[in-house]
């Protein structure tokens, strides 16, 4: 009997370990006191302070723009890479593409950030583009590491997909391009959406790579948060965290719902 109980207890403790810090973050965002960890009373003042902080608001807008742009480009490129690796048979450089597309997944962020910055500096010196660093360079950097994740998601969906549908359309005389847009794309669209959401989240979350490739006047939200919390805990960051957690929870729930809506068309 004792053995039967040990495992659930360990599992519950594991889940508690995962969620307790997040829950305390949310709870103390509604705290009245400046002290983040002593409860004095309910208040929404830190949320009000957050929206009056123009630095945070403009960083949030910049981060959302960067995330949307790089997630979109990464989804297009990641889908192409997924197609190339699953649907085009053998071609020269396939091994190289396989390696290059998964390498960013294991590359330490500091190295990705450093290498891209050095590239941008060298490019600017040689071609005069990109002039300076900011929105463009962060988008280029984020697209590169996000497309690796999109490729993984899209590729596994393409491997699972029933190829006879493609073949049937082809037999009925559809051109490859038409087969892609009318058959393949609708079937893999849940994977594209979850790939896009994953890319969007990763871009929104990135501190290290953005710090390397951003320039003066283009601080992203994680960069602003990092410079604030480096000095210690601050309650408006708790309020910001709560907003992000709520948005993410809604997004994940939405994505799960979308993914479950058509689970049977593989």
């Amino acid at each position: 009997m004792r053995r039967g109980l040990a495992l659930p207890i360990i599992a519950v403790l594991g889940f508690a370990f995962l969620y307790a810090p997040i829950i305390s973050l949310v709870v103390f965002s509604f705290n009245e006191s400046r002290l983040v960890t002593v409860w004095t009373g309910f208040s929404l003042q830190w949320y009000a302070a957050l929206f009056q902080d123009s630095q945070i608001v403009s960083a949030a807008i910049l981060s959302l723009q960067i995330a949307a742009t790089s997630a979109t480009i990464a989804t297009v490129l990641g889908t192409l890479a997924g197609l190339a690796l699953t649907r085009l048979g053998r071609f020269r450089g396939k091994t190289a593409l396989t390696g290059m597309v998964s390498a960013p997944l294991v590359m330490p962020e500091v190295i990705t950030g450093l290498s891209l910055l050095l590239l941008f500096v060298a490019m600017e010196a040689t071609f005069g583009w990109p002039s300076g660093r900011g929105f463009t360079t962060i988008v280029l950097a984020h697209t590169t590491f996000c497309m690796a994740y999109v490729t993984v998601v899209v590729r596994s969906r393409l491997i699972d997909m029933d190829r006879s549908l493609d073949e049937a359309a082809m037999d009925l005389g559809a051109t490859p391009l038409r087969v892609f847009f009318d058959i393949t794309l609708p079937i893999i669209s849940p994977a594209l959406i979850s790939g896009w959401l994953l890319a969007f989240t990763l871009s929104l979350d990135d501190l290290v790579i953005a710090s390397f490739v951003s320039g003066p006047g283009s601080s992203t939200l994680p960069m602003v948060i990092f410079s604030k919390i480096r000095l210690g805990v601050s309650p408006d960051v708790n309020a910001l965290a709560t907003i992000i957690i709520v948005v993410v929870a809604i997004g994940v729930a939405g994505a799960t719902w979308f993914g479950m809506r058509k689970p049977k068309n593989r």
Partner: peptide, 19 residues
């Protein structure tokens, strides 16, 4: 699910726990 919430903020949460 926790993986989807900000990495930076999950580390920050521990600052409030361990301080």
């Amino acid at each position: 699910l926790p993986f989807w919430t900000s990495f930076l903020l999950r580390v920050y949460a521990w600052m409030g726990f361990l301080g």
